[in-house]
């Protein structure tokens, strides 16, 4: 193990992976509770589209991915769906448009295959020091916002109508929630790929909400599970010579049914009022 993490690329991969795991793990709890799982997928694909466009135009990928994703997050948070459609349909449209855009943009690139593989599946083992530090910085900011304002976010997710009624600007807090999801996703996508970023956002939160008895525990368990899966994925992929991202996703996917079984073994009880 010491020998493994003696290698710089493994240390950088661990820093990048853990940074993504911690921020996406926390944000995932809101994403799952708000039933906007596909917002995560749509934003991950928008980040990929932004990075792909930047690569073709020979611009820095991370700022482009961040700008496109934040713009998309703002649109998804603020723009109401047409009256005849549910909001989820707009998320589906965003996903389809971003994915098609990415493929078309990459098709015009001379190094399309290599770029596409990196963007879609990522390679956390190829992360540079600057990229790892940027991801860590974005994750730190996102986590700080969510630690400081956790109660506001929870109120707006739990009961937006009452939050509005007592004078809380739910539009502002929803926008901030989506912007932080967009920032964390965009920062992670270029290093980990859209698949792992989406999995880190959704799967640890699902498992945590299944086993945690309280919201506070879920907010601790989700990033902890995500971080453990990232480290286990790195170690196992090193030992078994398997791709890190898909292996980490497979580990996380296996954790969810295990958590469901554990939750089923401990069903909640309806309390009675003492006379």
């Amino acid at each position: 193990m010491t020998e493994m993490f003696g290698l710089e690329f493994m240390r950088l991969a661990a820093v990048a992976g853990l940074a993504a795991a911690l921020s996406l793990g926390v944000l995932g709890v809101y994403v799952v509770l708000k039933r906007v799982v596909f917002v995560g997928l749509a934003l991950a694909n928008l980040a990929t589209f932004g990075a792909a466009t930047a690569l073709v135009l020979r611009l820095p990928a991370e700022p482009a991915a961040l700008a496109v994703t934040l713009a998309g997050a703002a649109v998804l948070a603020l723009v109401a769906a047409p009256r005849r459609l549910p909001a989820e349909a707009v998320v589906g449209w965003t996903f389809a448009a971003a994915t098609a855009g990415t493929v078309l943009v990459l098709a015009s690139s001379a190094s399309a295959d290599t770029d596409a593989m990196r963007l879609l599946f990522g390679n956390v083992l190829a992360v540079t020091r600057a990229e790892a530090l940027l991801l860590a910085a974005v994750s730190a900011v996102v986590l700080a916002v969510h630690v400081l304002f956790a109660r506001r976010f929870v109120l707006v997710v739990f009961d937006p109508e009452t939050a509005r009624a007592v004078g809380i600007d739910t539009t502002l807090w929803t926008l901030l929630l989506y912007l932080t999801i967009g920032a964390a996703t965009a920062a992670a996508v270029h290093e980990t790929g859209a698949l792992l970023a989406f999995a880190l956002l959704v799967l640890p939160a699902m498992a945590a909400l299944l086993v945690a008895g309280r919201l506070r525990s879920a907010f601790l368990a989700a990033p902890a599970l995500a971080a453990a899966a990232v480290l286990a994925g790195l170690v196992l992929s090193f030992l078994l010579d398997l791709p890190t991202g898909p292996l980490t996703v497979a580990l996380l996917a296996a954790v969810v049914p295990a958590a469901a079984l554990r939750a089923q073994a401990r069903p909640g009880r309806r309390p009675r009022l003492r006379p």
């Binding site: 956790a150 109660r151 506001r152 929870v154 109120l155 739990f158 909400l209 008895g213 919201l215 879920a218």
Partner: peptide, 23 residues
């Protein structure tokens, strides 16, 4: 679906009186 306790729900009623961090 949000796993909040009755006390946490009731504390939300204090939201308009709390500072910017809602603590």
């Amino acid at each position: 679906v949000v796993p909040v306790t009755a006390m946490e729900v009731v504390l939300m009623g204090r939201a308009p009186r709390l500072g910017p961090f809602g603590r």
